Computed example of a mutant assay.
Amino acid sequence: MDQQATDFVVATRAALAQLSALAVQYSFSVVGALLLLIIGWLAAGMLSRWAHEGLGRIRGFDATLAQFFANIIRYAILIIVVVMVLGQFGVQTASILAALGAVGLAIGLALQGTLQNIAAGIMLLVLRPLRVGEYIETPSVSGTVQDIGLFATELKTYDGLYRLTPNSLLWNVPVTNHSRLPTRMHDLKLHIADQDAIERSMQMLLDMANSDERVLKQPAPVAFVTDLTDAGAVISLRYWANTGVWWAVSRDMTKRAKEAFHAAGITVRTT
């Protein structure tokens, strides 16, 4: 009985000594891990802010893209810190990196469409084929750009509807930007029934264009015969106007041409 008590005391002392040694050993690991977490957290925040501010100073660099890269830097540092902390407790970092790679691959496969939209969003923000306030047209969508995000772009259609378009639909497709260039040309074509009135009709169109202050003097407006038919002739008036007033000018010129030709007794129809 005394021997059993003695063995129990000896085993208890050995266990306590081993626990004490482990506590001393891992206390340094815990302290080091806490220090790594604190320093890493602060460093990630500081570097993220510096990156955001530095990219924001670059002329023309999009604020959304600057925030995106700043977040990438922050999370990359935090991941490195977590791997270092786990290494403090004897975890094999190679296994951690392999696991992170497998998780990243699985997430990438699951979010393939989302990642495609992010990549397209980055390209749209870097190359800027469209900007907020511009009217664009693609084979699938059209409207005025309201906001460009990393996943989707917000558009407002001509009839006042809200349209959220995935960025992948705006990338790798032809994009017609109606607002980017400062001037636009309008080619007004009219079909007149009387071929004898060709010269008079062209002069009337030129006078009408030159009398409108919104029509640019350079390049100068020109009128010419586009085609001759058995029913008459097709004449064109080609002029340039500032993009901001192009739509209003083109509608006004079409209306004025019809009214002027009707008053002059020239039968005309738009083609």
Rank of each mutant, 00 (worst) to 15 (best):
L97N: 06
A70N: 05
V85M: 07
L105N: 04
R57D: 12
L115A: 07
V85D: 02
R74H: 11
N71H: 09
F89M: 07
V103F: 14
L47P: 00
A99P: 02
V103L: 15
A102E: 03
T114Y: 09
W50K: 10
A94Q: 13
V83N: 04
I77V: 10
L47Q: 07
L115N: 06
G108H: 11
V103T: 12
I77M: 10
F69K: 03
H52Y: 11
L115R: 12
G90Q: 08
L86A: 10
L86G: 04
V82T: 05
A98E: 09
A120P: 01
L127S: 13
N71C: 10
G113C: 07
L78F: 06
G104E: 04
Q116D: 10
Q112P: 05
Q92P: 03
L78R: 08
V85F: 05
Q116S: 12
G121P: 00
V82N: 03
F61Q: 05
V126P: 01
N117L: 04
S95V: 15
R57F: 07
I73M: 10
V82P: 02
I79D: 05
L125R: 04
I118K: 02
R49P: 03
Q112D: 11
M84K: 09
Q88I: 06
G56K: 13
A106Y: 10
S48G: 05
R59N: 15
D62V: 12
F61S: 09
G121Q: 02
A70W: 02
P129V: 08
L127D: 14
G56V: 12
L125I: 06
A76E: 08
V103I: 15
G121D: 03
Q112T: 13
L86W: 03
G101Q: 11
